[in-house]
Design a protein around this nucleic acid. Structure first.
Lengths: 223, 223
DNA sequence: TAAATTTGTGAAAATTTGGTGAATTTTTTA
DNA sequence: TAAAAAATTCACCAAATTTTCACAAATTTA
């Protein structure tokens, strides 16, 4: 997912950028409308976070020009609630709206909501959590947006974990679900695969927690 | 709902308290991080409103320490927008953020939003009684919302008790159900496990009652 | 009250469990 | 078919857990 942030305040851009990166989004930044339009030319932007008050080309103008050529979902930031009136009168086209100071988590939540709304037609088989991205269709694992080489077994195990988060899974279950009911091998084989998988997951290795005397568990802590 | 307000300014605390009480929330107050941590120990806090600038232990430090042991949604108050910088660098963990001066109504709105977000997603197999929460699926015991490290046997014993409340259970039964019918060990082993389990249960240790000459019993007093 | 029985508990000993590196076998790829 | 990659097995080790045990404390019985 490619997010374009247009805001003249570095601080706001930084915060939004960090939170977006944390979600595994690609981030492009512009400090005014002109730069924003430039980036739209070159990149394939999925969603725009747009500040209204900016020098040079303000948010209203940018938004109008953007609408002429593209139709990209846009969340508008504005400093004061009163501006909502103006915004509303001027255009029904925006997808969402937040006043500063805003909660970064809320912004992310809204970005997700919009992306979900606009994306649910093209089968979205990509799981994203923190810096982990799993493309089930293409069987690719990304860690912090870098492709990680992963063996088939590792991928299957990770997939099973992701589909059963926060659940202590016995080695037996894993064997049955990932290897198949007719597999008769050493249960400790799993430990070795977990070891390899954890290594592949880099700094997120701790999301796979061992549950002593049971097996393992994938931690998914929404919030 | 229990709200903890941590701020050194009486005025702010008073305002927040009044608004919270008006919503029917219970309010706990601290004027610095140390006091805040104390209260977390003793009370079952659902959400924290945290000022950054405080004497003694500041908000950043408090937040980090809180995160080590708990995972309680937190709204941060800060005096100036410039602190945004440090704020985001220091942690992605906060749930919301407001700059002073803020509108109490807005604070309440955000508290509500967060409580709604964090409360309605756990519809799974989670047993809750007093301050005890048992996540059977994830095999986690929470005491007053704090994760308690518990051994597999302890967890199994506690699970058995919970599924058979207010029933005197003989040591023999326990051995059969938790250890398995083929276990041949000293019955007094159970006593040791009960000891450990009771310790893990902290102030709820008395819910496991000894039934002299029989075994033990888990007290569940619905009302 | 004294003796007998039962439970609580700390500490040590015994056992189980999981992490890991390395060797081996199997499967895939070139 | 040879080489590379992946899967599996295995054994050692450290750490966590379970068990045993002896004595103290509590409760019951005589």
């Amino acid at each position: 997912m490619n997010v374009l942030i247009i805001d003249d305040e570095d601080l706001i851009r930084n915060v939004v950028r960090e939170y977006c990166l944390n979600e595994g989004y690609n981030v492009y930044e512009a400090s005014n409308g002109y730069q924003g339009l430039d980036i739209l030319e070159k990149e394939n932007i999925d969603i725009i976070v747009l500040d209204i008050m900016m020098p040079k080309m303000d948010g209203y103008t940018f938004f109008e020009k953007m609408k002429e050529k593209y139709n990209i979902p846009t969340i508008v930031l504005s400093a004061r609630a009163e501006e909502y009136d103006k915004l509303f009168g001027f255009s029904m086209g925006i997808d969402d709206y937040l006043t500063k100071p805003f909660s970064p988590k809320e912004l992310i939540a809204r970005i997700k909501a919009i992306l979900k709304r606009t994306n649910n037609n093209n089968l979205d088989e990509i799981y994203t959590y923190k810096g982990i991205k799993v493309d089930f269709k293409g069987r690719v694992l990304y860690i912090d947006d870098k492709v990680v080489d992963i063996t088939p077994k590792e991928f299957d195990i990770l997939s099973y974990f992701i589909k059963n988060p926060n659940t202590a899974i016995t080695r037996d279950q894993l064997l049955n679900k990932v290897w198949g009911y007719d597999y008769f091998g050493d249960e400790r084989t799993i430990d070795t695969h977990i070891k390899i998988l954890r290594n592949s997951m880099g700094k997120y290795r701790d999301l796979i927690v061992t549950v002593r005397s049971i097996g393992y568990k994938f931690i998914y802590d929404e919030k």
